[in-house]
Design a protein around this nucleic acid. Structure first.
Length: 451
RNA sequence: GUGGUUGUAGCUCAGCUGGUUAGAGCGCUGGAUUGUGGUUCCAGAGGUCGCGGGUUCAAAUCCCGUCUUCCACCCCA
């Protein structure tokens, strides 16, 4: 059979793993510095835990795991005849692959609430799975890097998370804009116009601003059934999207007031920190229909600095008031952010931003010209490794040409050559692969040179 | 989920409206150099043309299905 892997999944070779780890360890370092502790949760969760948390569309994108055993025999024959998948599904699948890290985390918090000290700061870097249609930068298996704080309403965490975004992208050397908004400000628009029931339609339309422009948003609102004066009013609001103007136009909405105050407080906290990245209030940021209730964040490439790459958001997050409520623990507020590692990878690849590969961690390769030399090479490798020297031996007494090419291809800086002459004199030929020079050394001198 | 797109040697790609043994560059292997790589020269190996079916005297080429890739929606990281 021809080997293949499922669509939207990937293998990672050594070089890709190195580059990915550069991203992961950078994120981990910063998370840890801010006091977040790493946890891990299983790839599979009970389907009960996952379904209904991501909306009807999200449920469609969940990967379900079939029950073990003869699962069909336990299903009512009438159910099978109806061919209604949604009815049969609960009978044949109890588990699914996690869709994100936030819901499993909420489950974790509720299950371990008695062991956890609040506010609890945790981070998690693990793969998640979505049965989405793949595109470039969108996969069915991909990693998320999440940091969340639960059990506190304090806005210092909003400010901290902004700092984390700032520092991670500074360390990765990617210029970004950190956008911040507040759900209550968006709700204020609907409230002010007295059309609270249209809140979702309004946010979905506004969210597309940077993609389809003001006229496109107006068209969307029209299709959603908003009255023309309302559309014009929203249009005016969107064309003056700085904090002062929004305050002026929305100030008499109580919801918007709360949101505006929150944003101002966060900016106040950040005022005396030296941020490297652009941070901007952005009224058009809406973050879909997800569970956020307070501040929302999104990170995108700073197009003022880099305009050559089209790339969606590199991260997002926000505050959710009652995430653990569905698992029976109410009154726990949380705020969190996520990094899109796959997209960050693509950006770093595009701007050539990865640190240069030290192609080999090996300091030297031991080459032997005959069987006797190979035995000696094995022994010398053992001695050198005991001294902590990174070395390897070519596994056969192949042609020297082949062995040197092997070292050359792997950018190993030195080769030690063991032939009959070297064995007889106990003086080993050390070849510098950079300039081609050679020297004869005793084993003790060799150890001195490399340790 | 809707509409479109892609698949030829290890890699990047040619192959026009169907017509003999499907090509190139790079890479790989061997030799020039029987103990010296990264340069050069010479030679060689390597392909179920994504998979399955159909049309035809004849299919990499046309048709259908399927998988995969990428794109636009939807949504999202």
């Amino acid at each position: 059979m021809k080997p293949s892997i499922p669509k939207g999944t990937r293998d990672f070779g050594p070089e890709q793993v190195r580059k990915r780890n550069f991203i992961f360890t950078t994120i981990e370092t910063v998370f840890t510095k801010y006091g977040f502790a790493r946890i891990e949760t299983p790839a599979m969760e009970s389907l009960d835990t996952l379904t209904g948390k991501y909306g009807a569309e999200g449920d469609q994108l969940l990967f379900k795991v079939l029950n073990n055993g003869d699962f069909l025999s336990k299903v009512e024959p009438s159910l099978l005849e109806d061919k209604d998948s949604s009815k049969v599904l609960p009978n044949i699948s109890k588990r699914g692959l996690r869709y994100d890290l936030t819901v499993p985390f909420a489950r974790f918090v509720v299950m371990h609430q008695n062991e956890i000290q609040f506010p609890f700061k945790r981070f998690q870097i693990q793969p998640v799975w979505r049965a989405d249609r793949p595109q470039k930068g969108r996969y069915q298996e991909f990693y998320q890097c999440d940091a969340d704080v639960v059990g506190s309403n304090s806005l210092v965490y909003e400010a901290e998370l902004v700092q984390i975004y700032d520092e991670v992208f500074h360390r990765l050397n990617i210029p970004v804009t950190i956008k911040i908004n507040h759900r209550q400000i968006l709700f204020g628009i609907a409230e002010k116009l007295g059309i609270e029931d249209q809140f979702q339609a309004i946010t979905v339309a506004i969210d597309k601003m940077d993609k389809i422009g003001l006229s496109g948003v107006k068209e969307q609102l029209r299709m959603a059934g908003l009255a023309t004066p309302h559309i014009e009013w929203i249009s005016e609001l969107l064309s003056q999207p700085n904090l002062e103007n929004v305050e002026h136009l929305l100030g008499d909405s109580s919801a918007a007031q709360e949101g505006l105050l929150t944003i101002k407080t966060v900016f106040e906290y950040l005022k005396r920190t030296s941020l490297h990245q652009q941070i901007r209030f952005d009224l058009t940021l809406a973050r879909g229909l997800s569970y956020y209730t307070g501040c929302i964040f999104e990170v995108a490439i700073d197009t003022q600095v880099i305009n050559s790459i089209q790339m969606g958001s590199l991260g997002g997050g926000g505050r959710y008031d009652n995430l653990t409520g569905i698992f029976g623990l109410s009154g726990v507020s949380g705020v969190g952010i996520s990094f899109g590692a796959e997209r960050i990878y693509d950006v770093l690849e595009a701007i050539d931003g990865f640190p240069p590969s030290t192609a080999s961690s090996l300091q030297l390769l031991i080459c032997s010209l005959d069987q006797k030399g190979l035995g000696e090479a094995f022994y010398i490798a053992h001695i050198l490794r005991e001294k902590g020297i990174h070395c390897d031996l070519y596994p056969d007494a192949a042609k020297l040409k082949k062995q040197l090419k092997f070292a050359s291809d792997r950018a190993i800086p030195y080769c030690l050559i063991l032939g009959s002459e070297e064995l007889a004199t106990q003086l080993y030929t050390l070849k510098n692969m950079d300039d081609g020079s050679q020297a004869k050394l005793k084993l003790s001198d060799l150890i001195d040179q490399f340790s």
